[in-house]
Amino acid sequence: MGCLRACGETTRIRLLALLVLGELTVKDLTVILGQSQPRISRHLKLLCEAGVIKRYPEGAWVYYRLGEGGPAELARRIVAQSQQSDPVLAADHDRLVSLRRAKAEEAAAFFAARANNWDKERSLHVPEVAVEAAMRALVGAKSFDTLLDLGTGTGRLLELFSEQYERGIGIDTSQNMLSVARANLDRVGLQKAQVRQGDIYALPIAPDTADLTVVHQVLHYLEEPGRAILEAARTLRPGGRLLLVDFAPHELEFLREKHAHRRLGFSQEQVGNWLAEADLELVSTNDLTPGAGEKDKLTVTLWLAQDRRVVTDLPVADPTKELA
């Protein structure tokens, strides 16, 4: 009943019709609806209290998104009924499309300004398409519930694995990169994925959340990679998997000076020790080495580890009774 009361108001239906399509800030919603910020904020507060939507702080901004479970599903049905030939909702949708287009242009400009550095890094190892193919081969084709992408950057991995997961979450510290990721997710219409601002050492993710957590080309930027692996392991469900992708040891010092790398690659022993400290079992590794005559290029290594806890429907025997 509380959900119905929260949704049963014209402005709140307009808000829900927009939030069904993705996450938006208060500023976004005021622009689209043409209403004051206090008015929009009050309606959003009521929807949050009813459990229909969720709020995600990101620096000075707060993003709102449709929640999960019963109240949110009821809201989806209400919106679906309301959208039939409603000119107000249609106009809101057109303004949302225009707003997203403007944000995509801003994101593209930010990305283009940094493309030279990223292109330089990519030229130092095997093509990215080969890295992505190796990642998919290690993960396998089986479907799973939740993907967590740490250091999501452009959100590429949320797109890469989109056919396999039911829910995708990308985490990054940079608001600019999150803008790029949101624009990319909007471009491909990937509504089951979302991105959040967060610290890789203190993730805004509950324990036992992810079936697959990925850390792709992030560890070499960190002062404490082992600590980040411990935090990534905390996010895994019993039997969940952690995929690490980074460079093998190398001596390209200019990557420290010009590309902000803190670590010049990682050895098998080093990563193996960190995984053991996180109580994860190393399942498989794969080295993507440069071709003949490419001595100055880097080896990309993939490590796949698994949470040691066993998922079972069978009763677990009590060892104290066996000893009695």
Rank of each mutant, 00 (worst) to 15 (best):
E58M: 14
A232S: 13
L47Q: 01
E105N: 04
D86L: 08
E277A: 15
D318Q: 14
Y63K: 04
Q197G: 11
I169G: 02
G189R: 06
G34D: 05
A233C: 09
D246A: 07
E223S: 13
A90I: 06
E132A: 14
L124E: 05
I13G: 01
I40P: 03
C3P: 04
A104I: 01
A102Y: 00
P207G: 10
V215E: 10
W303E: 01
S174C: 09
K321W: 13
Q268P: 02
R101W: 00
H125W: 02
L16V: 09
F111M: 03
E163Q: 15
K192D: 12
D313T: 15
R167S: 14
T289K: 15
A317N: 07
L314Y: 15
L222K: 07
A317E: 13
T312R: 13
Q194V: 13
R42N: 12
K192Y: 11
L304T: 02
R39S: 11
G155V: 01
R65F: 03
T146Y: 08
A17L: 08
H250Y: 11
F247I: 01
G51M: 09
T289Q: 14
F266Q: 02
G153H: 08
M135L: 14
R234V: 08
L89H: 03
A50H: 03
A228C: 08
T11Y: 04
I13F: 02
I13P: 01
A50D: 05
R237M: 13
E277P: 01
